[in-house]
């Protein structure tokens, strides 16, 4: 096998048009191998359509896709066995047991080994905590259990890439935690994870890279640290003698102070020494009841990018 490239997923000018509307409009993704890549965007922004194109379910109107260094759709059959995916919710035959559903899908993959099939299916069920419900028919499953079964399906074989579309949808808080832990442990094994979500907290907790999509376009892309640095770090301060404090802060190079209730808020450099400022204030007999740094949240940045409310924009 040839040398593995830097990117697990690489797209160039990827476009999907439905009639006049461009659901995906010339996006260029670069998902580093080994990363946990968050694909964030409001509902209807084109995330699932993009995933469908990545997996060869839908044909791109324009642009190029490389999945694990294979051209898509040309080399789809070579690339897909190395990819596990959960696309737009789990889907199973309701009249078959969870276990038989997995056996069915694994049988469909002619690259998978029939002699290890049952062992692999059981291991996948074990991994998502479904062993006890393996023999139940899927129509008796709760949404959360179906979601887990969908994850088990993605884990039937050792994968190089997992594409997970809203993997915690429909899960209770406990299930959400478990799935997040599962994703972390998979990432620790070196599997690249491409995680789409409309939940910022999920992306922030799990991912090291992120792309923000809205209305079919990618608005920002990079490591989480890079995107965070777009925001402004702020100093939050509450003191008894405000006017004096303002003057002292000026001597420390902090201006543009705003006031919010009793708090003073000032934009500062990210690496400012808060303890030192506190010391200066206290030496001048100013009582400091609160002093802290507020780091820029991704949320603000994303709201800047996508507009308020994450609503359906079209």
């Amino acid at each position: 096998m040839s040398e593995k490239g830097q990117w697990a997923i690489e797209t160039n000018g990827l476009t999907k048009a439905f009639g006049d509307q461009k659901a995906v409009h010339g996006i260029s993704l670069a998902v580093p191998r080994g990363s946990v890549f968050g694909f964030l965007g409001p509902n209807g922004s084109g995330k699932t359509t993009t995933i469908r194109m990545l997996l060869g379910l839908a044909e791109a109107t324009d642009g190029e896709i490389k999945l694990l260094d294979h051209q898509i759709p040309k080399e789809l059959q070579v690339a897909l066995p190395k990819v596990g995916a959960l696309v737009e919710g789990p889907a199973f035959y309701p009249y078959m047991s969870g276990r038989n559903n997995l056996i069915r899908i694994d049988s469909a993959d002619r690259f998978s080994d029939p002699s290890t099939r049952k062992a692999r299916v059981d291991a996948a069920l074990e991994r998502v905590g479904l062993s006890n419900a393996a023999k139940k028919k899927v129509h008796a499953y709760s949404l959360g259990m179906k979601q887990r079964l969908g994850l088990a399906n993605a884990l039937l074989k050792p994968r190089e890439l997992l594409v997970l579309d809203e993997p915690t949808n429909g899960l209770d808080p406990q299930g959400t935690r478990e799935v997040r832990n599962l994703i972390r442990s998979l990432a620790a094994e070196g599997i690249t994870i491409f995680l789409s979500s409309h939940l910022l907290t999920e992306i922030e907790q799990l991912c090291d890279h992120v792309a923000v999509m809205s209305a079919g376009k990618i608005l920002a892309q990079g490591s989480l640290a890079e995107l965070r640095s777009h925001g402004q770090t702020r100093l939050i301060l509450r003191v008894d003698k405000i006017d004096e404090a303002v003057d002292i802060l000026k001597t420390q190079g902090i201006g543009k102070i705003k006031f919010s209730k009793e708090n003073m808020i000032a934009p500062v450099a990210e690496d400012i020494d808060v303890a030192k400022i506190n010391e200066v204030l206290v030496k001048k007999k100013i009582k400091v009841s609160e002093i802290r740094l507020e780091h820029p949240s991704l949320e603000e940045y994303f709201v800047d990018l996508t507009g308020e409310g994450f609503e359906v924009v079209r």
């Binding site: 469908r52 997996l55 060869g56 379910l57 789809l76 059959q77 897909l80 066995p81 990819v83 995916a85 696309v87 737009e88 919710g89 789990p90 889907a91 199973f92 035959y93 309701p94 899908i105 694994d106 469909a108 993959d109 002619r110 399906n153």
Partner: peptide, 18 residues
């Protein structure tokens, strides 16, 4: 209708074979 088609196709199954 069930949605299982997408999971079969990404298993992967070649469409003609299916």
């Amino acid at each position: 209708g069930l949605g299982t088609l997408r999971y079969l196709l990404i298993a992967p199954v070649n469409r003609a074979r299916l």
